[in-house]
Amino acid sequence: MATTQAISGGQSRRRRQLSDAALLRLFIFPTLILIILMNIFPLFYSLYLSFTDYSAITRQAPNWVGFKNYSDLLSDKQMWIYFANSGRYALLSVGLQTLVGFGLALLLNEKFKGSGFLTTLILVPMMLSPAVVGLFWKLIYHPSSGIFNYIVTFGHPTAIPDILASPKLALWGIIIVDVWMWSPFVMLLCLSGLGAIPDYIYEAAAIDRASWWRQFWRITLPQVAPLLMIAVLFRTIEAFKAFDVVMPMTAGGPGEATELIALNLYRQAFGGQWRTGRASALAYIILIIVIGISNVYIRFLNKIRGD
């Protein structure tokens, strides 16, 4: 509604200026053109490869095999384990990140002396290079020369097992690192959302003597929700692509406890026989799952915005 009003308002003034329609094209086209140029070929080419038996290290031309890669993958019981690992990893790490990030944002929303400095310090884990983070946490988790076990057990590192060698705890090991690294991302977005809530809403609530709890559920959460949901959306997508932190840390082990789907994808694409065709098919399966989850999120996001 507001847009149409603005457009008609602009047209009524006869002045030498860009029309809104021209401005719209000028603003959107560079982005779309760049994305299309850079991505259409890779996207379709890998879709094509997913129907072939192509291997990037052989000189043989790709052979069309139809849906064989897809049916092989979907009937492979191992793949379901990897998908389940990824699902559990995404759910737990994104859930914890949301709690920690939102909690921190609530704490930091009220300015105190040095809060700005503290906020910036909390952002530091996010700024580290993921490949190095994974490598370095391996040292931190080391049962004898790492500090993790020392701190968690207050100086008795043998009281708990080697996290990354334990089939039960290894997944938690990589979840902790992801939460540590990316909670600041959620925090920063929530902080911006909290800052955007006008004070008068709280003042009105205070006049109505609404409890803190009630204010939180009725004002704070709905107002922060759009930015929070964007953070959750991006973190979920990244969780299904998690690779560069986990690879140097556990390489999927022990056994297959931390073999996430993206890790297995890498193995199929660049390990052993370089099954490029099969890896492409797996990538498209992952893509479809991520699109499905994103759609649910976005529908939810639009519902919140619509209110």
């Binding site: 994305i35 070929f41 890998s46 692509k241 994103s294």
Partner: peptide, 24 residues
């Protein structure tokens, strides 16, 4: 749809996109 198209650029794991991008 356009926004979703833009978002989807991030969904495909880098490992797979690299092969066609490498060739291109």
């Amino acid at each position: 749809d356009l926004l979703f198209f833009i978002l989807s650029q991030r969904m495909l794991p880098a490992v797979v996109v690299t092969i066609p991008i490498f060739l291109m």
